[in-house]
Design a protein around this nucleic acid. Structure first.
Lengths: 201, 201
DNA sequence: ATGATAAGCTACAGAAATGTAGCTAATACT
DNA sequence: AGTATTAGCTACATTTCTGTAGCTTATCAT
């Protein structure tokens, strides 16, 4: 059917998608704190009354949008390329974080008021316990196959990559592929004993 | 009339301090987005009109409070204890980040709307270009004295400690001293060639 | 074609915050 | 003590968002 021309009124899925896109844009722009039915409706070009027919408040709309967004892709370690797999895992993280849903999640998690109601729902649905699991999936895979001593894979080490990428993103400078390679070479690999090494105290 | 003490009305510095404390508490609780003259005045127990006599909007009050807050303490590397100095640098970071001013700064930096006006003022005043300089001050000190190769002190390596601490704080679990020691031992020291080392590719 | 469904529109009363103004009264300075 | 500051109080017209309601009409299904 013709997207536009005959139809003057959106319905069902088409309208829903427009509203979902609107909340995600809105939350990135104004933050969870300033999210309003007004703002969402304005951005989606639909009256507030339409929103109230389906949801009770702006947070409800937001959670629904996140629920319907694409899930986080999981890194799939290949055969014998620890370094490459780590870089790819961080690329996945960056890609998702810069997506509308990712940016929305970031806005939610850093919001002081959103803690109780929203965060729980987030971890149950969007993350499905995959939060911060980008590099550790890869690391566990190679540790189990003896590429490095498994006892070096501590909670701290499992977080190094995500932490550094997060810091770059917070600084407003999304890491390039070269930055990711540096993170892997200069921080992660040394921590599991596979890096520059000059002395062992 | 006076229930306790003689004075029933705060003036000058006393009132100012109460207002400054109020904004910092307020911004941590509701975020920059929901910061209002109303809220600040309510928390400081002063009418809005008093606030308008001095500042034009909530952001103005906030910036003034940050300007009058204690500056970030700088790490002062000792003689011959790289590990201990790194841990102390991270302790400084944690202490400041958990202070009212630190929590307020975090709220500001993670707010989507605060970018243009606030962030610039922040880096000029509160940080004075010391942001994220906790461990790198220490690292530079020891690199210059030959404790480890200076070429290993890359931008990535200089950020490892701060990044991991930030991640813990974002996760809502302020790192203990033992956590900080783990970060130093398992992430920072290996990256400068002073850690567990089993193979050199 | 025809009726059911659901979106668009308008209106309204209430809450909360804004910015301004004018008055009162407590505190500080000389 | 007398005076200048300056905080506290009250009021008011605006603005923005909230929920709710009732009516109109485009779109879909049969």
């Amino acid at each position: 059917m013709g997207e536009h021309g005959g139809r003057t009124r959106r319905r069902g899925g088409e309208l829903l998608a427009a509203i979902h896109a609107a909340v995600l844009e809105e939350v990135v722009e104004v933050g969870v704190g300033r999210l309003t039915m007004e703002g969402i409706g304005r951005r989606a070009a639909t009256p507030r009354t339409t929103l109230y027919r389906r949801w009770s408040d702006p947070i409800d709309v937001l959670l629904d949008a996140l629920y319907h967004s694409h899930p986080v892709e999981e890194p799939t370690p290949g055969a014998d390329d620890l370094r490459g797999d780590l870089i790819r895992a961080l690329q996945l993280m960056v890609t998702w974080t810069l997506s509308p849903a990712g940016r929305a999640v970031a806005a939610i998690l850093t919001d002081p008021k959103g803690a109780p109601k929203v965060s729980e729902a987030l971890f149950e649905r969007v993350f499905a316990n995959k939060g911060g699991t980008f590099t550790s999936t890869v690391l566990r895979h190679y540790a189990e196959r003896g590429h490095f001593p498994a006892d070096l894979l501590t909670p701290v080490v499992a977080d190094i990559g995500e932490a550094l990428v997060t810091k770059r993103l917070l600084d407003g400078a999304p890491p390039t592929d070269a930055d990711l390679a540096d993170i892997v070479d200069q921080a992660i690999l040394p921590a599991i004993g596979l890096g520059p090494c000059r002395a062992t105290p």
